[in-house]
Design a protein around this nucleic acid. Structure first.
Length: 952
RNA sequence: GCCGGAGUGGCGGAACUGGCAGACGCGCACGACUCAAAAUCGUGUUCCUUCGGGAGUGUGGGUUCGAUUCCCACCUUCGGCACCA
């Protein structure tokens, strides 16, 4: 037989498989179906090694499933709308359509070189009108079912280019436009949203889904459900000292996302997870974008507020939310009334409050929230503890000379924990830590021994200020100022402090007891003081509800899905705006709304749909008058939320998919793709499916039963592959040099699939060598057949053990060990050949099983060798071999012997040896005897078939 | 910063449910074949060692007869953070 030349055999078999329609997937009720789906690629121009890494193992597993009797559908297509096409248009003057379809043509060719079992008849291309007609249709259905709506939302905007910018188009610390380097601004636009939040609770349910735990956790955190309360604060004027007007009745539950715009008049609604801390709310913070900011801000604060809003708008949400960032904000001049105690509290704005979470406003409880604490310390706002410390710890620093001599001895006698250490340059002070039950005794002792003209404070679980004429307790805003005034009178260096907390926070000894975010009994909370932590939230919320100032509320981090893109290359949003009739969908019989081809590209990237002279002119579907089309297009995540449905029947023109195909193939049995899609795409597609289900379009709770994610292939320099870094690995070159089979095998072998790894160009020689060895071995068909029955049995054992491993690893997506097992078995077969096994029935069986196991991994060489040994075409329609458990059974086992957990010896015993016999054989070992040194063992542990541990 | 992963020889990785750490491969060294080279085949390859043994799975602790595996803290690194897809 000739040498192994993959460049000859691979195109040959690919052409034959194609001509024979070997991979056509058609409905066949007699067989169980398997829908294997790999994530829709974007046609960026060149197939990336990352595509191969993602798709080859998916293909191998689809093939394995097919050999296991399943009718497998493994489709492919292109997610072909999106930003890069427009970038090419702007920078190189190529029409996005032309650029996209040229790329698709190239990638089809490249994809075919993989030898994957795609059914190309089912190819779906999201930028084809016959595809995006249905994307538009879905938009209209969602709109008709109340799941699409418009609201104002900010975008990053380049004022010079007059364009909305994607996050990746904003560069640098100063956030400038990638094209013209102008600093970006935020611009508020009316945009379309889908109500994903309506499905938030259902999306948290993963019942019956075989998805990786990490993805479920990521999604759960992304959805970010939290239970708490909404509370309404009324705004009052600076001058107002009279009691505030009563808060109007609670309007009842409304749609979550609509809430924000419904904040009006003089009411601020906040969401809080800690209604039990309401008595400690000493100020409010609005997001700088909050609609009430303008109304509340007093004339003398206008300049500062406007300046702050501008700087906040230039940051990303990530920067704004960062916990370690310095907290900044400005006072608006406005005040609100804390509904629980009538306290007048100032209203600030700060960038750490985001308009996209909750109601865009918070009540700040600095004693029990880390960020609020930092903010209050910085701006001198009062901090009043309202939740008891569960640990009951208080601290007190006794200043040098503030107590009568001998105080330390008294503490010792009272069993109070303390140490003496210098306080600045004042001499030694006493640093006291108190348990709850010691506070009263300590306070009494201090009252007796405090020298005139001093005070002492107890802070933490208790807040007592002991003066020579009595004790004051920090229990509210007024006592805060009263205590501070006394302290300033006694010790002028504290004059600059604005609050008691600021004063005590300057002593590092106190810092760990000043603030906590735990649950505990309520304190300083009027009639609620003493309410235990377990019931506090519920009882306070019930009371708020009864008073009409609040209610139970659930909030989510998940936001509604922003669909609008101010771009050309996307599916048009099929809506028409009429001055008389408002927004209405394009009548379904007029779909698709086609993208115009004759568009002009301004070098700035301004949307050509807006600039097109006639495209946006339309007739109102209601009154028939002149109206305007929506010129925004859809987010490409819309296209990729339903592509698995278009694959069912890409040419069907009566509906997005053929119901007969749906009924047979759906749901997707195995979905594979990158872990980077764990939240956005995989939440959107689940939302989409559930929304369609509720409209009667789809069935079942979930679109994808099983999910497996691959990791990423980095460049050889351990950096993300990119053209600019010059570290991109081109699969075409590798295929030309080594053949597709070797590249496929190497990609499965070189890393753990679910983790990914940096590319390693040196290892591929090993897989090439391996395939050549397979070739050589199978080529040789006649031999002496002279080897011993024992070595023939050993060969069979190894074959069936390998089959067991390979089968298991295919089920669990552990592709690297599949290839290892095949390499190992080949080594055994080489040894068997040396022993004269060629020509025996065991050898023939080994060859047969070997090629079947190889077929999903390296389909071309397996097919070639299968033909060579005279087996019927095609190996890919052969059944998967069955493990002969009896043959795989070991006769003898080696048991490692440990003494005190360290390996000291090994014994070989028949596999069926009784436990007691194994133990006594282990104890009889010379090595064990040596370590026992004549003493009896304390314990002998035998883990059946695994190991013996002798405890001396 | 927040959420989720990952850290094992010179390198990629293996180790099933807490039970022999380093399978398989790359690289390297030596040998065979060859005039020679490539290819191929064979042997060896965690580190230290006084050759008895000792240490060792990012770091530090803990649980256990026994920990790469479980628990706590930390370090490094990768993915995502809502207009890249």
């Amino acid at each position: 037989m000739n040498d192994y030349i993959p460049q000859e055999i691979e195109p040959k078999w690919q052409a034959k498989w194609e001509a024979d329609g070997l991979y056509h997937a058609d409905i066949d009720e007699s067989r169980p179906k398997h829908y294997a789906l790999t994530m829709l690629p974007y046609p960026s121009g060149d197939l990336h090694i990352g595509h191969w890494y993602a798709m080859t193992p998916s293909d191998a597993r689809a093939r394995y499933k097919r050999m296991n009797g399943f009718n497998v559908m493994f489709p492919i297509g292109f997610d072909s709308f999106g930003l890069p096409a427009e970038n090419a248009a702007i920078s190189r003057g190529i029409h996005p359509k032309k650029w996209t379809y040229a790329n698709i043509e190239n990638m089809r060719k490249q994809l075919r070189s993989m030898g994957a079992m795609w059914d190309w008849r089912r190819e779906a291309v999201s930028s084809n009108p016959q595809y995006y007609k249905w994307s538009e249709w879905f938009f209209i259905q969602l709109y008709k079912h109340g799941l699409a709506y418009r609201k104002m939302s900010p975008v990053d905007f380049c004022p010079h280019c007059n364009t909305t910018l994607a996050r990746e188009q904003v560069w640098g610390e100063d956030r400038h436009c990638e094209r013209c380097e102008t600093p970006v601004i935020k611009k508020d636009l009316e945009q379309w949203f889908f109500r994903t939040t309506r499905y938030a609770d259902e999306l948290l349910n993963y019942e019956g889904m075989d998805w990786p735990e990490r993805v479920k956790v990521l999604q759960t955190n992304w959805i970010g459900r939290s239970e708490g309360a909404e509370v309404r604060f009324s705004v009052i004027s600076d001058q107002s000292s009279a009691l505030p007007a009563p808060v109007p009745p609670w309007p009842g539950r409304q749609d979550r996302q609509a809430q924000v715009s419904e904040v009006e008049g003089s009411l601020i609604t906040v969401f809080t997870t800690r209604p039990d801390t309401l008595w400690g709310a000493t100020f409010m913070v609005l997001s700088p974008e909050h609609p009430l900011v303008e109304k509340i801000t007093t004339p003398d604060h206008k300049v500062e507020v406007e300046a702050y809003k501008t700087q906040a708008a230039r940051q990303t949400d990530i920067e704004r939310e960062a916990v370690d960032k310095e907290k900044t904000g400005v006072f608006t001049g406005g005040y609100a009334v804390n509904p629980v105690n009538g306290e007048k509290i100032p209203i600030w704005i700060a960038d750490y409050v985001l308009m996209t979470y909750g109601t865009g406003a918070i009540m700040a409880v600095p004693a029990h929230d880390e960020r609020d604490f930092a903010f209050a310390i910085r701006y001198g706002l009062p901090i009043i503890p309202v939740i008891d410390r569960p640990d009951g710890i208080s601290k007190s620093l006794v200043f040098p000379g503030s107590v009568a001599p001998g105080f330390a001895d008294l503490l010792q006698t009272a069993n109070i924990e303390f140490y003496a250490a210098p306080v600045g340059s004042l001499g030694d002070g006493l640093f006291v830590t108190l348990r709850r039950e010691q506070v009263d005794g300590y306070a009494a002792l201090m009252r007796q021994h405090l020298q005139p003209g001093n005070w002492n404070e107890i802070v933490g679980a208790h807040w007592l200020f002991i003066f020579d004429d009595g004790i004051m307790e920090l229990d509210g805003v007024s006592s805060d100022q009263a205590i501070l005034a006394r302290c300033k009178a006694i010790y002028p260096p504290v004059n600059h402090n604005r609050t008691v907390m600021e004063m005590v926070n300057s002593l590092p000894f106190y810092r760990d007891v000043l603030f906590h975010a735990d649950y505990g009994a309520m304190i300083n909370s009027g009639e609620f003081s003493g309410t235990p932590g377990e019931t506090a939230k519920r009882r306070v919320t019930q009371w708020l509800k009864a008073k009409g100032v609040g209610d139970f509320a659930v909030n989510y981090k998940l936001r509604d899905w922003l669909i609008s893109r101010q771009r050309y290359w996307g599916a048009p949003i099929p809506m028409i705006n009429c001055q008389k009739c408002g927004w209405n969908p394009v009548p379904e019989e007029q779909l698709p709304v086609l993208l115009p081809d004759d568009v002009a590209w301004k070098p700035t990237g301004e949307s050509p749909l807006k600039l097109h002279p006639t495209w946006k002119q339309a007739q109102c579907p209601v009154c028939g008058g002149a109206a305007e089309r929506e010129t925004d297009t859809m987010d490409t995540f819309m296209c990729s939320s339903w592509y698995h449905l278009r694959y069912l029947s890409p040419h069907y023109d009566k509906a997005p998919f053929d119901p007969a195909e749906y009924n047979y193939w759906m749901p997707v049995d195995t979905y594979t793709g990158g872990i980077e899609h764990a939240t956005m795409h995989l939440i959107y597609t689940r939302f989409f499916h559930k929304a369609l289900r509720d409209m009667g379009v789809t069935e079942g709770a979930e679109p994808m039963i099983q999910l497996h994610n691959q990791g990423m292939v980095l460049g050889e320099d351990h950096e993300k592959m990119s053209k600019s870094r010059g570290n991109v690995v081109a699969p075409d070159k590798l295929v030309a040099r080594y053949g597709a089979d070797a590249v496929r095998a190497y990609l499965m072998f070189f890393a753990r699939w679910d983790m990914g790894a940096p590319w390693n160009s040196t290892g591929i020689d090993g897989t090439v060598r391996w395939l050549r060895r397979v070739w050589t071995l199978v080529s040789e068909r006649s031999g002496p057949g002279t080897c011993s029955p024992e070595s023939r049995r050993n060969l069979r054992r190894k074959v069936h053990q390998s089959l067991r491993r390979v089968t298991r690893d295919f089920e669990t997506f552990e592709f690297n060990t599949i290839v290892s097992a095949l390499m190992e078995l080949l080594n055994t077969m080489y040894a068997a050949r040396e022993a004269g096994a060629v020509g025996t029935p065991e050898w023939d069986e080994a060859t047969d099983i070997y090629l079947r196991m190889l077929a999903p991994v390296c389909p071309h060489i397996a097919e070639e060798l299968w033909a060579h040994i005279g087996k019927p075409y095609s190996i890919h329609t052969q059944p998967w071999p069955q493990v002969d458990e009896a043959a795989a059974q070991e006769d003898e086992i080696t048991i490692p012997i440990q003494v005190n957990g360290k390996l000291r010896d090994r014994i070989v015993v028949p596999a069926d040896t009784e436990d007691e016999q194994v133990k006594s054989a282990a104890l009889a070992s010379q090595a064990v005897q040596k370590y026992l040194a004549g003493k009896p063992p304390r314990q002998v542990i035998y883990v059946k078939g695994r190991l013996v541990n002798v405890v001396a």
